[in-house]
């Protein structure tokens, strides 16, 4: 945890000193990068570090969709299913992905490599359909592109 505290210190230095409370979200992001998913004890840890009520951090943790509260696979595939991507065939691709990975929405493959999440708009409407694997975008998808991306990851 000490190295985490160092990172926390470095991050909090970039914010004005009176804005400790603002650091809740950045620290949660940071912690998630470190640990993959977050639990309530992490929230309490951050709250203690910042001196804010633990409930505030817990609320934030449960409220923001990017924060994972359950263990996820090594690669988190987030497929956009909003209007523009749907118009360009996202539903078909989601079915394809489900079938290819053999998992449903929100599930992780048994080998722990992939987690399939369906998300709302990724702001890639012009290049729809799109998905985000871990943090990087993959746009203008088709079955072939998906095959290639998955190939590359494994």
């Amino acid at each position: 945890m000490s190295c985490l505290a160092d990172k926390f210190d470095r991050l909090s230095a970039t914010y004005p000193a009176q804005m400790r409370s603002s650091l809740v979200l950045p620290l949660l992001h940071l912690m998630q990068e470190e640990k993959g998913h977050l639990t309530e004890s992490d929230a309490v840890f951050i709250a203690d570090y910042l001196g804010v009520p633990a409930m505030q951090v817990k609320e934030a943790l449960s409220w923001y969709t990017m924060l994972q509260r359950a263990p996820v696979g090594r690669h988190v595939i987030k497929v956009c299913r909003n209007i523009s991507c749907s118009l360009m065939g996202a539903e078909r691709l989601i079915d394809y992905l489900k079938q290819k990975l053999g998992i449903g929405e929100g599930e992780t493959t048994p080998d722990g490599r992939f987690t399939l999440l369906l998300v709302e708009c990724l702001a890639s409407c012009g290049t729809a359909p799109a998905m985000q694997v871990n943090d990087s975008y993959h746009e203008e998808l088709s079955e072939a592109r998906i095959d290639a991306i998955l190939e590359e990851l494994s």
Binding site: H29, M66, L67
Partner: peptide, 22 residues
């Protein structure tokens, strides 16, 4: 960085979020 919430595009909720709340 936000945490994934459409409503944070609303200005007052953006501020709440920036203050470290949901």
């Amino acid at each position: 960085r936000g945490g994934g919430a459409y409503v944070c595009g609303e200005e007052s909720s953006l501020l709440t979020s920036l203050e470290g709340f949901k």
